[in-house]
Design a protein around this nucleic acid. Structure first.
Lengths: 232, 232
DNA sequence: TCCGTCTGTCGCAAGATTGTCGCAGACGCC
DNA sequence: GGCGTCTGCGACAATCTTGCGACAGACGGA
């Protein structure tokens, strides 16, 4: 689950925000001044920063500037001022969004969610680009199209669940390579892997059933995991 | 990875933009005035130009005019002015998009990606889709005319709200491609995306209802988002 | 101001997915 | 061949996702 760095010196407000975010499942790290914020940012590598403008020891703008030098972490700025000039400065320095006090919890949450969603989208797009996704993968009678998120077997579309799709895609990208269950859990399940090794087995089981002849080419590597039989 | 020519004389702003784009994986070439911009454009053949309106030595409009004489490179104009007349002039001269200062990084990034994506799409499909947004899109009994912002179903006009229209247009442009909710929120809702995933669902729901048979071709990609069934 | 349209939210129900469990069978090692 | 370990696989329940109706706030026009 995402970690949020909250930088706010007004204790009471900070508590309210932190509690709200925590009940929503986010991990909240709290800094009370600018120096602490930079320190925590470096240590915790949060997914999002909620940054108050007025801070002891180093103001929000300076924190923003320094953060921006090291990481593209999205920043939501909080401010009591509403003057247009401040808004301009904040946004030009790379704040991703801006909220003027007083604001409703509801609005804060909506923006936090939006920023996290966007960051996640960017991350996915980048990794997809790196992996050269988009090109259809073929293997015998099977064709898997990442762009359409669809699979065809003998020219007939087949239904694959998200997990099945991701696992199959991984196998198809590296035929012959053996994947350990731990690696698969890490890669396919990512950080949400609450599953045990049996989960992997089951997805493979379901894939084999759905894929017919191609399914038989998913081999068990005893004591390790699975691999797609290298092409002849 | 795409190369972006950034033409902006305000050093600090330019640095922020450049850094942001670079962390996203783009190569950024920076020009500080109009003459340098033309020079770099000729040498680097960038995939996109981000062009400030006010520039030393040759203003943005003139740069745009000259660039247009030699290449169809997409151009995103930046300007401090918000008057309608300027906007009209810029777009008539062939700017592809337009952003008024102050703007958020989020917005800039969204537009940059939208422009690159569109350019890429155009490059790929050197078929009938040679238009940008003007040519009518057809699909079975449905005809959608972006220019007139009007839709016809079985030769009868149907009412679509702006959001519905934009989403449908996106689907029609890339039949078969799966769009995640996050992507749709980023693209269709753009700036004002305070909505949650349920908002997307609802627009799709309304579209399906309005579109009859064509509506049934909007498929749910479980765990991902939506897709227009590819044409046979 | 009243009214109609557009949009986001909420809540519930239906349905899909996925992790767990148990057991049978396969495998590797000695 | 015997034995401990690992895997295949069916069943099931918990969880997650989506469809959809209802509703309320925002907005703009009359």
């Amino acid at each position: 689950m995402a970690t949020i760095l909250l930088v706010e010196d007004a204790r009471e407000l900070a508590d309210v925000i932190a509690r709200e975010l925590q009940t929503l499942g986010y991990r909240v790290v709290h800094a009370i001044d600018g120096i602490a914020a930079l320190d925590l940012h470096a240590r915790e590598a949060p997914d999002l920063i909620i940054l108050d403008w007025m801070l002891p020891r180093m103001d929000g703008l300076e924190v923003l500037r320094r953060v921006r030098q090291s990481a593209p972490t999205p920043v939501l700025m909080l401010t009591a001022r509403s003057e247009e000039t401040d808004r301009v400065v904040g946004l030009e320095l790379g704040a991703d969004d801006y909220l003027t006090k007083p604001f409703s919890m509801r609005e804060l949450v909506a923006r936090v969610r939006a920023l996290l969603r966007r960051a996640d989208l960017i991350r996915q797009t980048l990794t997809a680009d790196r992996d050269d996704a988009g090109e259809p993968l073929r293997r015998g009678a099977l064709m898997l199209d990442p762009r359409a998120h669809a699979a065809m077997l003998d020219d007939a579309p087949i239904e694959l669940s998200p997990t099945e799709f991701a696992l199959l895609q991984l196998l198809l990208r590296s035929p012959g390579r053996a994947f350990s269950r731990a690696y698969l859990l890490d890669t396919v399940w990512q950080e949400s892997y609450i599953g045990g090794d049996r989960s992997v087995d089951n997805v493979v089981l379901r894939l084999r059933k759905k894929l017919g002849a191609v399914g038989e080419e998913i081999e068990t590597v005893w004591g390790i995991g699975y691999r797609l039989r290298p092409e002849k």
